[in-house]
């Protein structure tokens, strides 16, 4: 291979995501792993895995940008970084033309980012110092309920009579869950209640007129959350391709921007508009 590739590394608190794109902004390779305690080693493994998928080696990287909590831990490939909010916005601008709200549910935090009709960031909000509505909340609850995280989506879909949880405090919610178990409520109904709680928390962070797309690991593994968000807002919420990779792809797009400062490629209409 002679054409170079552009790499985005999103070192999140929970998962590390790497995306490899070409000059036409196509995703050629990607990988996701638990970030663990050695961010650098995980990022290296993810990088090599995604490069292999793309059919490239490290010497084919034209430019790379990192993002996420561990963005400074990948000096072996790049010292240039952007915030996750910036990368998600860059991804949103590329994938969806015009105004859109991006709701990202990550392991540790949530973000609501609004893009204006020109695709520029009009504003953003992050959750307060609170696990409510984050992946950490669902992880805690899966432990309490003794069910694997990956089983939650299927269980929630089986719910007949959703349990409503009132508190936005993870500790208080756990108590509520235990109380519901004691009262004989079914696990699928409780899991749907947990999903409902997550969606409520993120929707109440901001007002949501116009198009909404959801991203992040929680969304990738629990697409039912997107359907529920659609029901709650009264209109479809977009579920993109590779929702967990959105930040990494945004970082890769920034890497491409740097290699192509005139930005001609930014004007190429995106093939993917609503996933």
């Amino acid at each position: 291979m002679t054409t170079p590739v552009f790499v985005g590394l999103d070192i999140g608190s929970s998962r590390t995501k790497v995306a490899v794109i070409d000059a036409d902004r196509e995703v050629l390779g990607h990988a996701v792993r638990k970030s663990g305690t050695d961010f650098t080693a995980t990022a290296a493994a993810c990088l090599d895995e995604s490069l292999e998928m793309a059919g490239f080696r490290r010497d084919g990287i034209a430019s790379a940008i990192s993002t996420g909590y561990g963005r400074a831990n990948v000096a072996f490939v790049t010292t240039r970084h952007k915030t996750e909010i910036g990368c998600l916005s860059r991804w949103g601008r590329d994938r969806f033309h015009g105004a859109i709200t991006i709701i990202d549910i990550g392991g540790q935090d949530n973000k609501v980012i609004k893009l204006d009709p020109d695709g520029r960031r009009a504003g953003f909000k992050m959750n307060r110092k609170c696990a409510a509505g984050t992946g950490a909340f669902l992880e805690e609850m899966s432990m309490r309920l003794d069910i694997p995280l990956e089983a939650m989506d299927g269980l929630a879909r089986q719910s007949q009579e959703m349990v409503k949880l009132g508190s936005y405090c993870t500790v208080f919610s756990a108590t509520e869950v235990l109380e519901n178990i004691r009262h004989g409520k079914k696990v699928p109904d409780i899991v749907k209640g947990l999903f409902y709680s997550v969606v409520r928390r993120v929707l109440e962070m901001d007002s949501h007129a116009g198009r909404v797309v959801m991203t992040g690991g929680v969304v990738a593994h629990n697409p039912y959350i997107v359907e529920m968000a659609g029901e709650m807002t009264g209109r479809p919420v977009l579920f993109p391709e590779l929702p967990q990779l959105a930040g990494a792809i945004g970082a890769a797009l920034y890497a491409l921007d740097e290699a192509d400062p005139i930005g001609i490629r930014n004007d190429i209409p995106a093939g993917e508009t609503d996933g």
Partner: peptide, 16 residues
């Protein structure tokens, strides 16, 4: 969180 928020905000101002 403060750092991420502030960096993203200054990025937003620059890009705007």
């Amino acid at each position: 969180q403060t750092k991420t928020n502030v960096e993203a905000f200054i990025e937003q101002i620059a890009e705007g």
